[in-house]
Simulated assay, not measured.
Amino acid sequence: MISLVLLVGLFGCTLGLYRPDVTAGREAVGLYRPDVAVSREAAARIVGQSQDGPNVDGSYSWGYETDNGISAKESGRPKAADVLEVQGEVGYTDQDGTPIQLIYVADENGFQAKGAHLPTPPPIPEAILRSIEYNAQHPEEDDSQVQPVVGGYRQRIQ
Results as ranks from 00 to 15, higher is better:
120 T>A: 09
46 I>P: 02
59 S>G: 05
11 F>R: 02
8 V>Y: 08
32 Y>P: 00
131 S>E: 11
33 R>M: 08
146 V>Y: 15
153 Y>M: 13
35 D>T: 13
112 Q>F: 05
60 Y>W: 01
119 P>A: 02
92 Y>W: 13
147 Q>M: 13
66 T>N: 02
140 E>F: 12
15 L>A: 05
41 E>F: 06
75 S>D: 08
43 A>N: 06
61 S>T: 12
37 A>D: 04
32 Y>F: 14
25 G>N: 04
1 M>L: 04
70 I>R: 05
126 E>S: 11
108 E>R: 15
8 V>N: 09
137 Q>G: 10
115 G>N: 04
33 R>P: 03
4 L>C: 09
150 V>T: 10
64 Y>E: 09
41 E>H: 09
100 I>S: 00
84 L>V: 07
131 S>H: 11
10 L>R: 01
156 R>H: 13
98 T>G: 06
25 G>P: 03
85 E>Y: 06
27 E>K: 08
96 D>Q: 04
121 P>L: 09
146 V>R: 09
125 P>Q: 05
19 R>Q: 15
4 L>N: 09
146 V>I: 12
111 F>Y: 07
64 Y>M: 15
98 T>I: 02
99 P>M: 07
25 G>I: 00
62 W>T: 00
133 E>L: 11
24 A>D: 07
107 D>G: 09
91 G>K: 14
